[in-house]
Design a protein around this nucleic acid. Structure first.
Lengths: 340, 340
DNA sequence: TGAGAATACGAAAACGATTAAGATAAAATC
DNA sequence: GATTTTATCTTAATCGTTTTCGTATTCTCA
């Protein structure tokens, strides 16, 4: 590997001058600078990032925590799209992305925080993980520029999909279509679930809907079997709902199957709605009514904010960025108005 | 940041001894070693990866080339699942994964190869990219441990999904169900497409099927609109096929919509089949008959082989690893036998 | 007991860059 | 013409490790 030393020798100057020339510093002669740069080019020089990091404490590398033990990680449409957008955003600004290894500790380290500091990440995005683990808390408090997605820590910047508004919009949309008996199969407990669920209840109250307890049950995210079972249960009620909300689009398909197997049709006999807005939901008939989340903006804002925290730590304020989604009106929710 | 120097001072030994103690070398006394390690622990020491890299030329970091300009990258089920499996595999062995930035050059570098060498990646997996670009070729020839997915370079290890066998199995399965007029809407040109297409033709010939030219058309991968249009075209033929193969599962749903809008049913009126085996395809009725690709094994083999190339360069031979998929028999292909 | 081996540790160079401070010569100032 | 400025380049320290080689001490065994 050709180093600055080699270029210095070839050009008959010192290493310092080479460094300055390549970094376009002012105290190098115009002609010398050109000669050095040409030589560097000819000799196929490229910088040793490790050496540069060692001196400058900058890596232009961003750590991404993406723990998919419990969550589905990359194979989850929502997270994959957010990550894709995040990746594009930071790459355009000259940063690389490295996943924080969650399986095996980096030699000599004993936590995510140490891993990140050891690798010299300029900042860390916590995109998908168990936010309640003490190790994450330690990372968040570790002093590195940090940003989280869909979870709020005290004094840490976060990007949040507006689940409160989202659920409100979705339920209101369904209400306006004339539905009065709405069931909600919600996902497993998490900050996101809590937002949606409380928003569901609050919106229902505001709309004057009474939601019997048996209309609210839990089924894990993206679990078609669970959604299937819960749907069967709902259909067997004395007074079944006219519309069922699912934890996510994926689950909605599980419910859809249960409905079809009963010989019922969506939306003529019963309406359904998902959450997320995965691509396929728009491409399958009946297209699924769902709350589409703006994954492009979510990822972009995560990246932009994190880089801002890195590059302007003094002037960038800690804040929570809220990203709005919107109702995608498919044809899985029947318009009951005027049919009364 | 506490360094070895600090520990050395605290323990009254030299930096060299600290390094040896922490790396569990033999020429350090048992008691000294323990003392040093305890102190390191207490002081919250963790190694500086950059410094270590600089000395050892090892990063325990793997570059992944994932170019999604033209391809869909992370949002593509196939690649996302492969990457997820690759990530799990290498992480278990103590490696981190870094994406090779394809948007903006790392400072001072002028190609993927230079980027990878500058970052000190121990090896690079080319998972999703334009294999025909000269820059990729340069990377592949650059001397780093390299592995490719679904593309073959001379003298470079590769992991390939067996598209030839896959297409043969799929078509044979359909043939055995009694279908004799089979259309194939294939994806845009690539090594993968070529394998599948030639296998389709060869298998058809072996089975004695005659495939009229109008049964073979191109529609880009994962393009539901294109698949829709091609399906309409096929349905309008004087002699339409009894079964249509699509470039992938996603496209198949586009075709499905075209069929439904015509008032036809799948599979009663026309059969369809996809390729890939994405999750959702099993969860939507009619479940899609498709060739399921073993993304878990594909990713795992990519990771294992690359690490083997890194850790045992002398004894690891360059080879092409072929991973088999299998037909997932959904109910989108009608059994025509006995109906003649 | 004494020579050679084994054990435990240290000094110092090296990896490839950055950067503050100093040196030198040419140009500018009065 | 002496002095200050400016432009250009060098010296040398430093980042945090690893690793080679040297040395002093202890051990082993004839």
């Amino acid at each position: 590997m050709v180093s600055m030393k080699d270029i210095a020798a070839a050009c008959g100057v010192s290493v310092a001058t080479v460094s300055k020339a390549l970094n376009d510093q002012s105290d190098v002669g115009r002609e010398t600078k050109q000669r050095i740069r040409r030589t560097a080019e000819e000799m196929g020089y490229f910088p040793n990032t490790a050496a540069k990091m060692l001196k400058t404490n900058r890596s232009y590398n961003i750590g991404v925590l993406f723990n998919h033990e419990d969550y589905s990680g990359l194979t989850h449409d929502y997270y994959a799209f957010v990550l894709e957008s995040l990746k594009n955003t930071v790459e355009k600004k000259g940063y690389d992305i490295t996943f924080v290894n969650t399986k095996k500790r980096l030699a000599g380290t004993s936590s995510y925080l140490e891993h990140c500091r050891s690798r010299g990440f300029d900042g860390v995005a916590i995109v998908c993980s168990d936010f309640y683990s003490p190790e994450i808390l330690q990372l968040v408090r570790g002093g590195l520029p940090i940003i989280t997605l869909d979870h709020l820590f005290n004094n840490v910047s976060a990007v949040m999909s507006n689940n409160v508004q989202g659920m409100q919009d979705l339920l209101t949309y369904i209400y306006k279509k004339g539905h009065r008996r709405v069931a909600y199969i919600h996902g497993a407990d998490s900050a996101v679930t809590q937002s949606r669920l409380s928003s569901f209840y609050r919106t229902a109250a505001q709309l004057g809907l009474t939601i019997p307890d048996e209309y609210i049950h839990m089924s894990p995210y993206r679990d078609t079997k669970g959604a299937y079972a819960e749907t069967v249960r709902l259909l067997n009620l004395k007074e079944p709902p006219t519309c069922i909300l699912y934890p996510d689009d994926f689950s909605a398909f599980g419910g859809y199957n249960a409905i079809q197997e009963r010989g019922l049709r969506v939306p003529e006999d019963i309406s359904i709605a998902g959450y997320d807005g995965i691509r396929l939901a728009r491409h399958i008939e009946p297209t699924l009514t769902t709350l589409w989340q703006d994954t492009e903006e979510l990822g972009r804002r995560v990246g932009e904010k994190l880089i801002s925290l890195i590059e302007h730590p003094k002037t960038t304020l800690v804040e929570t960025i809220v990203v709005e989604g919107h109702v995608f009106a498919g044809n899985s929710v029947l318009d009951l108005r005027g049919k009364k």
